Computed example of a mutant assay.
Amino acid sequence: MDNKRIKTIAYWVTTILGPASFVIGGFLFTTHGVQQAEQLSHLGYPPYMLTVLGIWKLLGVIAIVIPRFPRLKEWAYAGFFFDLTGAAASHIFSGDGLAVAAQPLVFLALVIASWALRPPGRKLVSAG
């Protein structure tokens, strides 16, 4: 197998396990899943944040998976970065400990790998 093919496979694997996995979370947040509602309440967030975060997660997945729109993809990756680092920080600040706070950071590693491995057609070309 050549390097380009390996990189493409690695991109799709990390994208499915990382950013695309937000479909599940987005659905559970928008439908106000019991566990998600309890978790956000524990972290001190109001219930309406389930809807806001859920919609953003679903829109982010769409932005990353559809072809073209590289600037939109950059924003989606940035959104996932803020979502996941915010989740980790929220767990730390609420006293959940490092083991719980590390869980979103595992997904963050997959999101960063997906971003780093994305093919040229999915990258924003700088004007310079």
Rank of each mutant, 00 (worst) to 15 (best):
M1R: 12
M1N: 05
D2W: 06
D2N: 15
N3L: 10
N3S: 09
N3W: 10
R5W: 15
K7A: 15
T8W: 09
A10D: 03
A10M: 12
Y11H: 04
Y11V: 08
W12T: 13
W12R: 01
T14Y: 07
I16Y: 04
A20D: 00
A20Q: 02
S21R: 08
V23Q: 14
V23M: 14
I24A: 13
G25I: 07
L28I: 02
L28F: 15
L28S: 13
F29T: 10
T30K: 01
T30E: 03
H32W: 12
Q35T: 02
E38S: 13
E38C: 13
E38R: 11
S41Q: 02
H42S: 10
G44C: 00
G44Q: 05
Y48K: 11
Y48F: 05
M49T: 01
L58I: 00
L58M: 04
G60Q: 09
V65S: 07
V65T: 04
P67C: 04
P70Q: 00
L72N: 11
L72K: 06
L72Q: 03
W75F: 12
A76Y: 05
A76I: 02
A78E: 04
G79P: 00
F80E: 00
F80N: 03
F82E: 01
F82K: 02
L84E: 07
L84F: 00
T85Y: 05
A87F: 01
A88M: 04
A89P: 06
A89R: 10
S90Y: 03
F93P: 03
F93L: 15
G97Y: 02
G97M: 12
G97N: 06
L98A: 13
A99E: 14
V100W: 08
V100P: 04
V100S: 01
V100Y: 08
V100H: 05
A102E: 11
P104M: 09
P104C: 08
L105M: 04
F107S: 11
A109L: 09
A113D: 10
S114L: 05
L117Y: 12
P119L: 13
P119V: 11
G121H: 09
R122M: 07
L124Y: 12
V125D: 03
S126C: 09
G128Y: 12
